[in-house]
Simulated assay, not measured.
Amino acid sequence: MKPPSHLKRSRDHAGDAVRDVDAAGAPREIGRILDRPPALANEALRGGARLTRRWCHGELHADLPGMPGHVVMGYYGAAQDCSWRQGGSRKASRTRPGSITLIPEGHDGRWDVEGPIEVSHVYLSNDRLLAATEVLAKGRPIELVGRICFDDPSASRVLEMLSIEAEQGDAASSLFAEQAVDLLCLQLVRAHSSLGAAPAAPRKGLADWQVKRVTTYMRDFLDRELGLDELAGLVDLSRHHFCTAFRLATGQTPHEWLVALRMTRARQLLASHDLPVTSVALAVGYQTPSAFASSFRKATGVTPTAFRAAL
């Protein structure tokens, strides 16, 4: 296992511009172990930073070698169990909106992710990270801390904005993305580094096994209406206490969680051109194609028909 290295800054011959580096290494390694490679934006940003659009990939059970640069991941939609083994240590959590995963440069490990999940990535070089945080670091060496599905609403929101800008590809979008990447770097250093690593917040709300029981039940009955009393009964809580505890544990309401599961399943079914859109709608709990199309478009930005056509 390669130990995390101190980050060093390098400059070009003019002495005042961050040197671009080959950004293909990390996305290539990650793409090698996924069923769908990272959906990279066309252009690299300053310092070799690369963005991805939001995309879905299936479950993952593989070893990932240490990579050049740092990888930051944001999550969308339905949650999945996730674990990262490195040496004799193991970290486990659950992918969920509002959380991030951070793989520092050189950190290898074994990944087990139940799928499918919807994600976006940002790939950062050491140069870009330190250039963006020079005032904060004041010349001190920095080591990033490995995180897995760690609650960080600030970094998660920046990742979401960057995933949107990755879809655009125009000059204004690139300028916005450059500033947002600097903001992400600042948050990583102040909350996830040797200069100021934030402690993990204590878990609140439902226990992991309770969230898993409710989630499994939702998946088993996506094709019908599910009431709050019915879901709360699975964990022996009143509907009021269930809603509060569920939101504390996942960051989403039970309804938002259920819709995310429905949309994930809908994407899978739409990938098969054998099923009419009406049948897909019924399979994920929508009685009319119009209600399904409205919900799907709100979640993905496109209609079910347009999503299928783009596959």
Results as ranks from 00 to 15, higher is better:
Lys212Ser: 11
His107Met: 11
Ser279His: 13
Ala49His: 02
Gly196Leu: 09
Arg90Phe: 15
Asp20Glu: 14
Ser83Phe: 08
Ala166Trp: 02
Leu261Gly: 07
Gly115Thr: 06
Asp112Gln: 14
Pro97Asn: 06
Gly233Thr: 04
Arg219Leu: 07
Leu175Gln: 12
Val122His: 01
Thr216Val: 15
Lys91Gly: 10
Leu186Ser: 06
Ala245Trp: 05
Pro116Lys: 02
Arg110Cys: 09
Asp22Thr: 08
Ile103Met: 09
Trp209Ile: 09
Ser193Thr: 08
Ser93Phe: 02
Leu231Gln: 04
Pro3Tyr: 14
Arg213Pro: 02
Pro68Glu: 12
Ala232Arg: 01
Leu64Gly: 02
Leu34Phe: 06
Leu222Asn: 04
Cys243Tyr: 07
Leu124Cys: 04
Ser279Ile: 13
Ser125Gly: 09
Lys298Trp: 12
Ser193Tyr: 02
Ser174Asp: 11
Leu231Met: 13
Val135Gly: 10
Gly169Asp: 06
Thr133Asn: 00
Gly25Trp: 02
Gly74Asp: 00
Leu102His: 03
Ala207Ser: 12
His240Ile: 12
Pro141Arg: 06
Glu29Met: 11
Ala132Thr: 02
Arg262Val: 06
Ala132Gly: 03
Met161Trp: 06
Tyr123Ser: 01
Val302Trp: 03
Ile100Asn: 01
Arg9Tyr: 09
His61Asp: 13
Arg94Met: 07
Gly31Met: 03
Lys138Phe: 15
Glu43Cys: 11
Gly301Tyr: 10
Leu234Ala: 06
Ala310Cys: 15
Cys149Ala: 11
Gln210Ser: 08
Asp274Cys: 07
Pro202Phe: 04
Thr215Trp: 01
Pro27Gly: 05
Asp229Asn: 13
Asp229Ile: 11
Ser93Cys: 14
Arg19Met: 11
Pro141Tyr: 07
Ala131Leu: 10
Ala266Tyr: 01
Arg297Ile: 08
Glu43His: 14
Ala260His: 00
Leu184Glu: 00
Leu311Pro: 06
Phe292Leu: 05
Ala14Met: 15
Ser163Thr: 02
Trp111Pro: 03
His6Lys: 13
Ala293Arg: 01
Ala23Pro: 02
His241Val: 10
Ala166Tyr: 00
Ser295Glu: 10
Pro97Val: 09
Leu261Phe: 09
Pro153Ile: 09
Gln86Thr: 09
Val280Ser: 09
Arg157Asn: 13
Ala232Met: 07
Glu225Arg: 07
Asp182Lys: 00
Thr288Gly: 05
Thr101Tyr: 02
Ala309Arg: 14
Val181Lys: 00
Arg54Lys: 14
His121Val: 00
Asp22Ile: 07
Ala191Ile: 02
Ser290Lys: 11
Val135Met: 15
Arg239Pro: 08
His61Ile: 12
Gly169Phe: 09
Met161Asp: 09
Leu269Cys: 08
Arg110Ser: 07
Gly88Glu: 09
Ser194Ile: 05
Ser156Val: 06
Gly74Cys: 07
Leu311Gly: 14
Glu178Pro: 01
Gly88Asn: 03
Arg28Gly: 04
Arg219Gln: 12
Ala172Glu: 13
Asp170Thr: 08
His121Lys: 00
Glu59Cys: 07
Pro254Glu: 04
Ile117Trp: 03
Gly301Val: 10
Leu162Ile: 05
